[in-house]
Each structure stands twice: as structure tokens, then as C-alpha cells.
């Protein structure tokens, strides 16, 4: 099994962190995993994306032209990555941040009002966790509860107070099931 996931959005939307959480969870499960960010001047305010590869085997390329899944947190990310998702793969979109539906019909598309849900939970910045929950709830790349476990295990002490909210965000996201 190997999966390549691209998480893309504006800087500050927590795309890099969402990817790292997946990477931690995969690592804790003994899987091979790579996490690689886009880096450089474009990080200042522009787009920020990362690619996570999770595999049972030694990982070759840490990037993929046609990823198995994409989380698009804004319109430029949707425009850029929708055409690239591998047929049969997953496209998870923050519905609140785009003004169009996806057009592909050979992939699983989930339009998740992640910002709305995150605000209901108490912090708009948890939208990344809602989307991650939706991804994992559909793709089951990791063992049950792995993301929650990674949150507990790898959150800095001063941020631990946000764990319950992030877990709720993951669960709310997982309720969205691709048709």
C-alpha cells in the first residue's frame, strides 16, 4: 500500500501542520512516511502546500505528479490539483473557501464546509483538522484512532489545551462520506 496526499492552501491555514500530523500518526504505526513542504519566498503569505507519502515499503519519490488524495483549502489549490488527482482517488475541498464545485467524475469528491464546522467547534483554524478527518474517515490510511493518538503524543505542552477541539474537528470531518 502506498498513498500520496497533497494538502494545499494559503499560508496560515495549517496545511503544513495537518500533513505533519498525518506523518506522525503514520510513523507511530510503524509505516514509512515522508513529509515535504513547498518552501521559499512563496511561503510569505502565498500558497503553502505539503506532500505526505505513506507506505508499507521504503519510499521512493516523496512527491507525486498524480497523488492519491488532495485536500484543497482554497480555490487556487482546487484549480491546480483537481486535474492531477489519480483516477479513483480523493479530492477533499473546503467548500467555504471556493466558489465552484469539482468537475471530475472519476474521483471521489467531498465538499466539506470545513470553516463553518470549525467555527461551530470554536475556532476557524481547526478547518484543517475537519478536512483531515474527512480524508481519513474515507480513505482509512491509518489505524482507527491513529490521528487522535498522534495529537496526544506530539502536541507541545502549551498547545495541549487545543487537543479536544482538534479531535472533535477530526470526528466532525469523518462524518462526511463520499457518495
Amino acid at each position: 500500500m502506498q498513498a500520496e496526499i497533497i494538502i494545499s492552501g494559503f499560508g496560515g491555514q495549517g496545511t503544513l501542520y495537518a500533513g505533519q500530523l498525518m506523518a506522525y500518526a503514520a510513523m507511530d504505526e510503524g509505516k514509512h512516511v515522508t513529509w515535504i513542504p513547498s518552501y521559499g519566498p512563496e511561503m510569505r503569505g502565498g500558497t503553502a502546500n505539503c506532500t505526505v507519502v505513506i507506505s508499507d515499503d521504503e519510499i521512493g519519490s516523496p512527491t507525486a505528479l498524480h497523488p492519491t488524495a488532495v485536500i484543497a483549502m482554497n480555490l487556487p489549490s482546487l484549480d491546480k490539483y483537481e486535474p492531477l488527482v489519480k483516477p479513483g482517488g480523493y479530492l477533499i475541498v473546503n467548500e467555504n473557501m471556493v466558489n465552484r464545485a469539482a468537475v471530475r467524475d472519476d474521483i471521489h469528491v467531498l465538499m466539506v464546509p470545513a470553516s463553518t464546522i470549525a467555527m461551530e467547534i470554536g475556532n476557524e483554524r481547526a478547518a484543517n483538522m475537519v478536512l483531515l478527518g474527512a480524508l481519513e474517515g474515507n480513505m482509512h490510511l491509518l489505524a482507527e484512532g491513529a490521528l487522535e493518538g498522534a495529537l496526544e503524543a506530539h502536541t507541545a505542552a502549551r498547545l495541549k489545551k487545543f487537543i479536544p477541539m482538534n479531535i472533535e474537528a477530526l470526528h466532525r470531518g469523518a462524518e462526511f462520506q463520499a457518495g
Binding site: H32, V33, T34, W35, I36, P37, Y39, P62
Partner: peptide
């Protein structure tokens, strides 16, 4: 290379 420098792995 820049890739290896920026990449995270266990």
C-alpha cells in the same frame, strides 16, 4: 539538496 534538507522523515 534542498529537498532532503526540507523533508521530514522518521
Amino acid at each position: 539538496d534542498g529537498f532532503l534538507g526540507q523533508m521530514m522523515e522518521p
